[in-house]
Design a protein around this nucleic acid. Structure first.
Lengths: 239, 239
DNA sequence: CCAAACCTTTACGTCATCTTTACACGATTC
DNA sequence: GAATCGTGTAAAGATGACGTAAAGGTTTGG
């Protein structure tokens, strides 16, 4: 996919954004041991500039920067790039973690951490990015008696065409792209309605209900569109 | 991998922090017999300095130091490193054990102990650390006939899907992330229910019971979800 | 400019999960 | 052995989440 370099074929390039000299040194040793190419930034603005100009394969970002909010920086990068961002943070608070991940970070490591742990996360993020770049979703998907023609944007149940509204279709598509996986309500809301509506959980209730009535034989006892109470929803494409 | 030494491939390096000359000698003999490389510190400050500069594979720490800050020392190390810390304690009081484990110790041995016992704990801790460093947070974990698919947030026993409620899953996940290690009740409560519920130990009883009934073949005689009376719980992923 | 389609919002019955309590049991202490 | 403590289990009650229908609002297209 486009600007992404062949992250795993050659030596991946990593941008390290970290202000604390000691931790920077620690991470530098780790990156060298793993044979990555990398360059460093010690502040947010500099980091953003480097990310934009040098287009690294991955960004390793410490949230506790002095000059600007790390989460803000993630959002800035996400405006124009999907490059993997692995976050390092002193604080392990759930709130911070969720904020960073919602902003678009790929993974989150809290101090204290081992070099092995950080490098494992980096490898995993690079691998995911490489897979994403290769995978094109197939044009026609079947599950049960439901057929989705992605190219034509058409859905049918047992051969009969079913009309889905734009948001209904979008929601189903997001679920399909991650079929089998639980998607949190926030993830779904962000994908379908945009980041400004991640709190509006009623939307999901209403639209999941509508989808079930259009797709499921017995909407009250769904076979495909499953609820994960307290978490979110998942699409089962095989019994 | 990284600066972490290949703890099991070569001879692991151990830092021994112990003030009592007699016990020091005893442990020294044990370490030599087991063919570890090691160096010694006789006080807390010295121990911390050595841990920082020489980066051992494991710290063997006597809590009864003269500067009397063993637990404090554990906390200091944990600020920047996950290196395994095995604690030796003269007093077998539960309070002391819990305090040390809460501070981040990996295991504890109480006097009187045999050389075999101590070296077994050391071996176990080193093995866990090696596994942690190698394993990228893998998406699928197996132990016994239990399978956890972390990406999909799915658990199955002997191939059959098992439904876990949000808190049940969270609890199991925390145990898994530290599998083999004793986790104190406070640690578990803090991770799953938040810091404001570290005293509500009934939650753990109820939820551990529920988990066992869903995962164990014989809930009354668990093979994986083990109780550590007076301390907490631990998840065994290997017999 | 109207009508249709769609989205947003509200209300309410139902259900899953969490919380709390009570009690049985084994281990430990006195 | 009696009393105490920590634990395991079941079950009741409280809480909050979910599913659904239906009533405005807004956008779109003719």
């Amino acid at each position: 996919m486009s600007e992404q370099k062949a992250a795993l074929a050659t030596r991946p390039e990593i941008l390290l954004i970290e202000d604390d000299p000691q931790i920077r040194k620690f991470l530098r040793v780790m990156l060298m041991a793993e044979d990555y190419r990398f360059y460093e930034a010690t502040a947010g603005v500099e980091g953003l500039a480097q990310a934009a100009t040098r287009n690294p394969d991955l960004v390793l970002l410490d949230l506790g920067l002095p000059d600007r909010d790390g989460v803000e920086l993630i959002r800035d990068i996400r405006k124009w790039s999907q490059m993997p961002i692995v976050v390092i943070s002193a604080r392990g608070l759930e709130r911070d973690k969720i904020e960073a991940l919602d902003a678009g970070a790929d993974d989150y490591v809290t101090k204290p951490f081992t070099p092995g742990e950080v490098s494992a996360r980096i490898r995993a993020a690079l691998r995911r990015a490489a897979v994403l770049d290769k995978n094109e979703p197939s044009e026609i998907v079947n599950f049960g008696n439901i057929t989705m023609n992605l190219a034509a944007r058409k859905v049918s149940v047992g051969g009969a065409d079913v009309h889905l509204t734009p948001n209904e279709y979008k929601l189903l598509l997001v679920l399909l792209r991650h079929s089998g996986k639980v998607l949190t309500q926030r993830q779904l809301l962000k994908e379908v309605w945009g980041p400004e509506h991640v709190e509006d959980r009623e939307y999901l209730r209403v639209f999941m209900s509508q989808l079930r009535h259009k797709l499921e034989a017995d909407p009250a006892h769904p076979k495909y569109l499953m609820t994960e109470p307290g978490i979110g929803y998942r699409l089962l494409t095989e019994p």
